[in-house]
């Protein structure tokens, strides 16, 4: 169940998408987040979908696999769609049940927003799926370096990020182990009333918190004995290397944005 979650997961690979400089990828994703909002009619949305699908293909990932991994987030999307369905008014009235109405504008807006959300989620998932957490934080640290002038602790923030990313899978595994141990003791959080399911969470969370705190403490000690003292005197084993293809990615993204902007109505 939990093993299918894709949030924050990295799948090693050697596709073109994998090999692009992480900085280029982050900037491209940021650009995409802006571009998504340029689309305001069918052709625009269609282009967006095509773009993301071909990227997925290029990264060598199967859509079914992505879909399975993002099921939980689907709930959020469905919820947004429902909100628009019931609360956005305008156009012709399709259903009139007295206390609520569904109008055509609501459906159209709902679909648009759904596509936007889905594309945003897919592209960010693609980013984490094809970029190892380490190079991701490396890239963020590099991109944010100018902020140091403003006394923002860029390195420390990047370190915290990489540690938390690093521990997502560990904590997931741990959660699964504890769930198994408790359910071997007859705990049933998959069946029963809502109240009994909520009660069944205590035996999972308490051991999880305890081990997380222990782990954090051990980690801090381990870092300290290895002489970690922040950024001072630290060099990097992996050096990011910006190539022509990375510039090309950014240019492509900008062009894509311009196209979408010009076909706006």
């Amino acid at each position: 169940m939990l093993s299918k979650m894709l949030l924050g997961r990295y799948i090693p690979g050697n596709s073109l998408v994998h090999r692009i400089d992480p900085r280029a990828k982050i900037i491209a994703v940021l650009l995409f987040m802006i571009i998504v909002f340029f689309a305001n009619h069918w052709t625009g949305y269609l282009l967006l979908i095509l773009f993301v699908l071909s990227l997925t293909k290029l990264a060598g990932l199967s859509l079914i696999f992505l879909f399975n991994g993002l099921k939980l987030i689907l709930l959020l999307i469905v919820f947004t769609f429902m909100m628009h369905l019931f609360f956005t008014k305008g156009g012709t009235v399709l259903v009139d049940a007295g206390w609520f109405t569904i109008e055509s504008e609501g459906i159209i807006r709902g679909i648009y927003i759904t596509i936007r959300l889905a594309m945003l989620i897919l592209i960010t998932t693609l980013l984490t799926l094809t970029t190892s957490p380490l190079s991701l934080t490396d890239a963020i640290e590099r991109i944010c370096r100018p902020l140091k002038v403003l006394r923002v602790p860029v390195h420390e923030i990047a370190m915290m990020m990489s540690i938390s990313l690093r521990f997502i899978p560990t904590l997931m595994d741990e959660t699964e182990k504890i769930i198994k141990a408790q359910s071997a003791r007859g705990s049933t959080f998959m069946t029963g009333s809502l109240k009994s399911r909520l009660n069944a969470l205590t035996p999972i969370f308490i051991p999880l918190f305890i081990s997380a705190f222990k782990r954090a403490e051990e980690m801090a000690v381990a870092m300290e004995v290895r002489g970690y003292q922040g950024e001072k005197g630290r060099t990097s084993y992996r050096v990011l290397d910006w190539q022509f293809k990375d510039t090309a990615v950014i240019i492509m993204m900008v062009l894509f944005g311009i196209i979408l902007f010009t076909i706006r109505q």
């Binding site: 182990k177 504890i178 198994k180 141990a181 408790q182 359910s183 071997a184 003791r185 007859g186 049933t188 069946t191 205590t202 035996p203 308490i206 051991p207 081990s211």
Partner: peptide, 20 residues
């Protein structure tokens, strides 16, 4: 499945991690 769990008890590796 719950019936099966009743009859087959399992002590996991490091079982002390399940105390709460």
């Amino acid at each position: 499945v719950h019936q099966a769990k009743k009859r087959v008890g399992m002590v996991f590796q490091f079982p002390e991690h399940q105390l709460f």
